[in-house]
Design a protein around this nucleic acid. Sequence first.
DNA 1: TCCAATTTGATTGTGTACAATTTAATAGCT
DNA 2: AGCTATTAAATTGTACACAATCAAATTGGA
Lengths: 171, 171
Amino acid sequence: MSRTDPDLKTQTSAAPDAAEFLRLDNQLCFALYAASGLVTRAYRPILEPLGLTYPQYLVMLVLWERTPRTVSELGEALNLDSGTLTPLLKRMEAAGLVNRGRDPADERRVLVTLTQAGAALKEPAKGVPAALACGMAMSPEELTDLRATLQDFARRLKGVADEGDSYSRPA
Amino acid sequence: MSRTDPDLKTQTSAAPDAAEFLRLDNQLCFALYAASGLVTRAYRPILEPLGLTYPQYLVMLVLWERTPRTVSELGEALNLDSGTLTPLLKRMEAAGLVNRGRDPADERRVLVTLTQAGAALKEPAKGVPAALACGMAMSPEELTDLRATLQDFARRLKGVADEGDSYSRPA
DNA sequence: TCCAATTTGATTGTGTACAATTTAATAGCT
DNA sequence: AGCTATTAAATTGTACACAATCAAATTGGA
């Protein structure tokens, strides 16, 4: 018995019985969890010269599309709440990438805009996707399929999460 | 022009030009990042009654398979380093789920074992996969395909990451 | 034997993440 | 106007996550 597989339990996928079947989504969720960590890790050395972390890069992608944005708009786009975004944006402000200021029309809102340096960073950042893509070597079809599957998966999971915390729903 | 899509830029996937093509893996990586967050969120209400977070649940899955395990074995299985695992395991020790002790044969190693309470938690935890799976409603084929694709994707990404930090390689 | 290189965890510092609470401001109703 | 409910961020507290560094133990020669 020389199984040297370090994964949770990579079955031979021959004939999964009941117990194994239940383990399948554990494997799937873990695969997702692990792949996400690898994404962050893969981006790190590429983004480091730009002075960005991966979540900060995602914020910049949104801001490069259109600006200004409110904190809640960023949160909706990235699936993050203010408890995550506020300190993240403060660090980006300290780095001179963005400005934060209250919306005069509605003082509850905080408008996030790009500084000149932040806008200028778009140019060197154009090489980022290629730098990553050249390493993973997936075909456009594979990329498209996986993305579509993940988005479908995410839509279903969002449903599960919404059922879970019933108290956070309008009623 | 009434585009109300909150995503980064969900194209119509008609005829991607060069710029759009480069954006594809941004979308893919973000989809992965977002889906991973949703996994953690979906597990939260299910694991909360067991007193576990999702990473802690992953550690328990490994320990329920076989015990004892060293910290580095856990790290290899879960793709986490000691800086993450040490405090996590200490919290689990404080919660009475695991014991930690040096290996008499090699004092550098720390052996993690299950307490009675930790081992007993396996029973109620058996309902966890079903609780999650019943909500996402994916066919076994879909689950298997997505898992396989993700693992393939992860293998390639691992390659990219290893190229990135060239200083962490043996030489 | 002795000692340099390696291995293994722990520690430190920074940066996400999110639930729960708080604060401030707007909107809606009477 | 005055009051209540709602909304938007910020804050607080807890929990990952990893790079860099440190300390202790083991290993492998010379």
